[in-house]
Design a protein around this nucleic acid. Structure first.
Lengths: 157, 157
DNA sequence: TGCAAAATCACCCGAAAGTATGAGCCCAAA
DNA sequence: TTTGGGCTCATACTTTCGGGTGATTTTGCA
């Protein structure tokens, strides 16, 4: 074996060296190419990552800095129309007393003077005076008129 | 002048050349430095512009691809309640006629029988009969009661 | 403590509302 | 054509309402 190798070197030594040198050179070139590619890709990746990061930053900024769109959903709520709340101001302005209001409400509920008297534990005449006073203050002549006007003015629900 | 220059060169020629060479070298170095700075800043600007562009891209993407932020504000809207429409079914069920409904409506508006008679161009007795019939069908004994019940049943607004 | 407003009650009278009964007219459906 | 429902009107009667006047008691407030 040794003899054959030595004779081979002796006979083709320069050629072998040339081959090795060539191979080395090719390896060097390959290494340079890889290095170049590495650098190339490195830059690309760097730029890419920069782009990605700032794209994400943009998205984040967009989410953080844009004011949210306000959508108003109107929810329908059943509310008693004009007679929403009792108009205490109007009652006070007309000078209607507490007892008079009680009588007025009971009138609006359809009770007769006699029934109202029984409900409030007073005499029929008392109810009559109260209702009469209310009518005077409301400037009406009938209880039905009083009911209608009281509703429109919000005196009763 | 020429003589002095030539003599100067002849006496300090090498020194002059040295100075020129030194100056050139310094210029070269300065140029390299400027070039380096240029490259340096170029990279920074490049990266900066990349960042800016992709930040804007991110914002644009955010606007284009994400559904807008929605804040739901619920607002209560007053809606006329059940008494808004006239309950024709109930009217039919009670067997209340058209004329009777007219009288009932006018009663609810606070008109007296006489006023109703004038309004409808009929006699007081006619109004009385109509109202009496309505009261009978509604099972009430007074006009105020009729008003209240009619409201509750949706016969009148 | 005293006063004004509110609440209570009474009596009378006229007006309005409601009941009962009867009857005539008109129109659409059977 | 008959029939029934709706609309009209009248008369008589009862009940309820509303206005007017006057009076006493209670109560809230200064």
């Amino acid at each position: 074996m040794k003899t054959s190798v030595l004779s081979f070197l002796r006979r083709y030594g320069s050629l072998f060296l040339y081959g090795v040198a060539l191979a080395s050179l090719l390896f060097l070139l390959k290494w340079l190419e890889l290095r170049f590619l590495f650098i190339h890709y490195s830059i690309e990746l760097y730029i890419g990552s920069i782009a990605l990061v700032f794209t994400l930053l943009g998205i984040w900024l967009s989410h953080k800095l844009t004011r949210p769109k306000v959508v108003v959903l109107e929810r329908e709520v059943l509310v008693p129309g004009p007679g929403a709340g009792v108009n205490n101001e109007m009652i006070a302005r007309l000078g209607i007393s507490k007892r008079e209001m009680e009588v007025l409400t009971l009138i609006a509920e359809g009770l007769s003077n006699e029934e109202i008297a029984a409900r409030l534990f007073v005499s029929l005449n008392t109810v009559k005076t109260h209702s009469s006073r209310v009518f005077g203050k409301m400037e009406v002549r009938r209880r039905t008129q009083a009911i209608d006007k009281a509703r429109r003015m919000g005196l009763i629900p």
